[in-house]
Design a protein around this nucleic acid. Sequence first.
DNA 1: CATGAATGAGCTTTCATTCAT
DNA 2: AATGAATGAAAGCTCATTCAT
Lengths: 180, 180, 180, 180
Amino acid sequence: MYRQTARTRILDAAEELFSGGGYDATPTARIAELAGVPKGLLFHYFPRKIDVLISLVDERTLVTEEEVEAVPGDAAGALSRLARRLPLHASPAMRRILFREADTHGSVRERLGRLNAEIIRRARFALELAMPGGRGDAARLEAAAATFAAVLLYQESLCQLTGHHIDPDAVAELIVHALG
Amino acid sequence: MYRQTARTRILDAAEELFSGGGYDATPTARIAELAGVPKGLLFHYFPRKIDVLISLVDERTLVTEEEVEAVPGDAAGALSRLARRLPLHASPAMRRILFREADTHGSVRERLGRLNAEIIRRARFALELAMPGGRGDAARLEAAAATFAAVLLYQESLCQLTGHHIDPDAVAELIVHALG
Amino acid sequence: MYRQTARTRILDAAEELFSGGGYDATPTARIAELAGVPKGLLFHYFPRKIDVLISLVDERTLVTEEEVEAVPGDAAGALSRLARRLPLHASPAMRRILFREADTHGSVRERLGRLNAEIIRRARFALELAMPGGRGDAARLEAAAATFAAVLLYQESLCQLTGHHIDPDAVAELIVHALG
Amino acid sequence: MYRQTARTRILDAAEELFSGGGYDATPTARIAELAGVPKGLLFHYFPRKIDVLISLVDERTLVTEEEVEAVPGDAAGALSRLARRLPLHASPAMRRILFREADTHGSVRERLGRLNAEIIRRARFALELAMPGGRGDAARLEAAAATFAAVLLYQESLCQLTGHHIDPDAVAELIVHALG
DNA sequence: CATGAATGAGCTTTCATTCAT
DNA sequence: AATGAATGAAAGCTCATTCAT
């Protein structure tokens, strides 16, 4: 009746519900209901509840690790671009799931770790290329990259939890200035 | 039989278990068991499960908001000191609970919000006092304070989730350099 | 395993137990046990315990409100027939439940109210038709109908609670005589 | 601290709560709370919960069984007076308890049985004395007395449950007319 | 008498998961 | 693949009752 769409609709429903109320607080029955499929079918596609989360992260979250070109001399611009285009292909809902359920299952944690590493790598790359002459030692550069990654990763959560908004562009400019 | 200790032991047990497996994944029965009290007694002190979490945050978490002295000229030192002494009186376990269960209940979120605001306030204060002449505009100072707060708040989670360690002292030095 | 019978067996068991010990004093576990189904299945069909009672009243209690023919001149006979055939399709057990749990839930109360109204309507109809000339004013006729309804409704409870038996036929004859 | 009032206040509270929500639905804790006494004290005065109900019925319900004078010739008046002054000394709340909890415990049932018997006895007495010559045979007189008792006992419940009001005076007049 | 912490059996309800069709 | 009834362990919570002080 649903052909290949049943599985997709289950994942759609789970994405919405996990992102809203959290994995633990979402019964499989509600996922099936929202997906419009019978409860049994859910377990046909995903033998255990955790498999829904795992598949979600596996299939709807992609940390892009390809090389990026950087324009020497415009480190701030490169960081801003990084902020606007996280190396993460994922819907806002999936992002929330990724951060929220990081300790629910290893596969989620692993994905988040990869994302963090990739952001750091790119930030480091941008800063290195952009600041010729290697002013500022390696340790400071490392701290700068890690700081930028932390801000990017938690900016959204922080805003949601504390109401305090952080402007990534301002942080980018700040960091570049620190290394300039 | 337990005098005034039963309630305390329940909170002790909850602190340990919530910090370990999370609020949702911890049955009240296990809390009681670890506390060495009958299940019913838990509900004598805490009518609903969520009240255990609320009391924990209420009683074992204190965001200190008193004024702090700052030494003009040593902004990096002030930030380092802030990092080493968060304006938060709480055990490591309670800290984990605070960050992890922020979306489980409003009272937890509120406490985390207050903590964030207080860190930003102190960081701003330290930076303002330390950099005479007001070099660097207000917006940049604001970004610097918020960045430092984000790093302090999530440093521990980040390390736990991604394995990547951030050195707050290095970040402090970086930020001060940016405003210098 | 049970086909369409599981739900029926649950209602059967509930009917027996509610009628015996009362709604409040009957644990859902005993209903399931008597029905020979697992506890969980009861909540599959009836999400809350009260839904068992509501369904019971809804499905196993019918107040028939169709018109009735009355033989002019034989009011006592009509009332006796009314007593023997209450406009209520329900087992003796369901009758007991109806009277006993009237304040447990609105739906039970509503059903009992409808039954009372219907008995009064029929009694009035029988008396009106049977006594040509309208001897006895309207108020007396109304009191007669209400009295007969009260006796019919509570006759069984009264007997059970006080041990005192009332003969509806004698009351019918009495009432007709009063209006004669 | 309360001297002899504690026990009284417990009974007061129980009377209010039993009459409102019913015996089963009233926790002993709420009784103690409303009475303003600690839970333990309740069980000092009443070892089991049911003892509260029993004491209530024992002490706050009195079926008066003394002789009554009847005025020959005014049966309707005698019945009306009986309706207005039930041979029952009890608050409206206690009345509700008596009818509602009749199957909760034997002592309540017994009291209700005594009340019913006494009403029948008085109604019979009034009718016998008032109608000289013994018109109407004994069986009809018996039915008349029982009918009047049924109406008096359940009039209040009926009104509460079905919304239908019965006027005892009209029933009195009706019954007397039936025997006249 | 007075107190309220302590006790544990039992309650309703939830839920992931299985399985026959 | 599709269906939803079936299952039972476990959850949160209630409550009459006990008891040490």
